[in-house]
Nucleic acid binder design. Sequence first.
DNA 1: TCTTAATCGAGACGGTACGTCAAGTCTTCTC
DNA 2: GAGAAGACTTGACGTACCGTCTCGATTAAGA
Lengths: 203, 203, 203, 203
Amino acid sequence: MQSRSPASRTGRPRSATADAAILAATREALVELGWSKLTLGDVATRAGVAKTTLYRRWAGKNELVVDAVAELFDELELPDRGSLAADIEGVVLQFAAILALPEARSGLMAVVAEATRDEALRERIRASVVDRQKRLVLEGRARAQDRGELPPEPDSASADRTVDLIFDMVAGAVVHRTLVSAEPADEEWVRSFTRVLLHGLGG
Amino acid sequence: MQSRSPASRTGRPRSATADAAILAATREALVELGWSKLTLGDVATRAGVAKTTLYRRWAGKNELVVDAVAELFDELELPDRGSLAADIEGVVLQFAAILALPEARSGLMAVVAEATRDEALRERIRASVVDRQKRLVLEGRARAQDRGELPPEPDSASADRTVDLIFDMVAGAVVHRTLVSAEPADEEWVRSFTRVLLHGLGG
Amino acid sequence: MQSRSPASRTGRPRSATADAAILAATREALVELGWSKLTLGDVATRAGVAKTTLYRRWAGKNELVVDAVAELFDELELPDRGSLAADIEGVVLQFAAILALPEARSGLMAVVAEATRDEALRERIRASVVDRQKRLVLEGRARAQDRGELPPEPDSASADRTVDLIFDMVAGAVVHRTLVSAEPADEEWVRSFTRVLLHGLGG
Amino acid sequence: MQSRSPASRTGRPRSATADAAILAATREALVELGWSKLTLGDVATRAGVAKTTLYRRWAGKNELVVDAVAELFDELELPDRGSLAADIEGVVLQFAAILALPEARSGLMAVVAEATRDEALRERIRASVVDRQKRLVLEGRARAQDRGELPPEPDSASADRTVDLIFDMVAGAVVHRTLVSAEPADEEWVRSFTRVLLHGLGG
DNA sequence: TCTTAATCGAGACGGTACGTCAAGTCTTCTC
DNA sequence: GAGAAGACTTGACGTACCGTCTCGATTAAGA
């Protein structure tokens, strides 16, 4: 999450529970107030922690919210459901369920918006959220290739590009459906989406 | 954009140029400062207008930014390039070009984030941005059906759902590629995306 | 007191009552809290005024306290009591009475202490407090010379030096008695002091 | 200086050098920063000592500064110069020289100001600074009476009152001249002051 | 020589106030 | 009556110190 000075053996150690309390308080405040009305002073109060403790560990609101939201996505899994279509539908539904949480909705787009002007924040999001979940695409493709549902990749550069493309298409569609169009990504929608993704508009 | 009191005949009329100046100043400030550091006082100063004038016409920062950004998307067109694939590639490239503008990047995601907690704002975005551009999907589909590239829709409810799905997939993928993955949606990427959209992952 | 931008005709004028309320609130806070625990936020609250209003008019705590305390000394007068000794005793008792007020005790020495490191503040104190009261010494001497109690001054440079000396001796003795020795400058003490001042230790 | 727990025989003894280092660091910080910007954390750092060490020995900033400043006045002496006037001039010049030191100027008035609201601090100042230097007045008077320059005191109560009065007049005048009027108490001024003190205004 | 106990450094802790800034409203004068 | 100017209240910002605490490591004196 946040780095501490590596060579610090002396002095009072940081409270281990404070981190968890702060991130939980951040999510709670996101639910109640949303990103723009969330204040670090309020988060500190909710966490039962001093404002300085919070500033000692995170550089600001953006970094804190990224960490608080990133934890939500770590529970995503790709259980083997027997076919590529079923696998995709399963993980997309999980993803949609997380995006239905107010703490994710409010926080995620806000930090993405901030990241358009902040390279370091963009990198933090990529590391904490995006790259961490690309594993799902990799795993799903490998499984589908084992099953013979997808052909092997001709070369690794092309393979990487395809992973990125699929990730952008899946995540983008779900996010846009959920947050911009503001419609639920329910089972019916997910089935339609998966059909188009696998077989194209003509199918 | 903003409503004015309908029964106002008397008194000094509102300056007609002020609106345009304010929206232009808003976009300029978005470029220089980004959404979170944009202040209405600064916009007023840039526009050569008093803060009160600004508040008289827009309720707040979000509404102002939605209007300022929405104007950017009105120039999207769907010229007939002879095939569905070429039409999609053309409009997606236009969309990507707009999202490459700093004033669009900074503002769009921020108001979407705010909209997760503000129904009226969500509606304003839908009306000013989303629904206004769905025409492109409708037009492209009709043209493709005329050409015989796509089958006619069985019923209108299903047709609407498909339009929404395609719009979410196209807009979502471009936005995610551009703003979250922070990679350019260049011609190569657009070709790959269009191929998957039309023929599916297996193709 | 504080300067305002000279070329400001337009805009809302500064509230005239706010100044008086702030200075009164400052004296009240000095009484209750003393200089070191007085906070500008608290003064603003007491005065029913926003913190920004306060900072718009004074540069900081020191300048504010100087102005608040200086007003206390303006009521000093030198009524003609018939003899130099009686005149001195009268004004010294008035001075002692002001120094007995908690708002004066707490504030005066603190700003003098700050002034040891701040030329501008020293000048402000000199202008607001010291020079304003030297008139009492000048007036007393002139009256005593008219009565024939004191000889006329040989030259004006020497006259100025004597005024300064007398002022330092009178003010210094009362301040030291009151604040450092922390004993009351009562009538008995004032009589003894005046006797020594007029006739020397031997008398 | 500071009291330690009386019943502490065992355990590691307090570092003897720390006290001197802390008081020296305090004076150094007074010179550079003045009283109001002096922080105990900074003093601790300058002294090469932990903040806890400092708080273990002094109750707070005021007590520390009193001790640091009081040491400066211990070097005052009253060498026998042959006459009362010469003796007074000598000691007043020494006193003025100490008050010309930045560490004395900044600290002394500040703690006096704090003492207006703190009885214990007032007592500490009286004990550490004021009473310790009254010996000079007593010694000077005794010497003058031996020389026949001053009459013997009629009774001891009156004698004490006179000592207090003289001390307030001398110390007060020098302090006021130096810190409030902010003019040097040079030889010329000291001669004039001594003349008035011994012979009165009329002389 | 081996406890024993208060010291030492370092630095995190819950707090408070700082001085600044933006939001949105109000007041005055001008066009 | 709209508009420009700018003072107003409110409240969050991020920083700096406060005085307290926890920690592991010294350091002398007494057992």
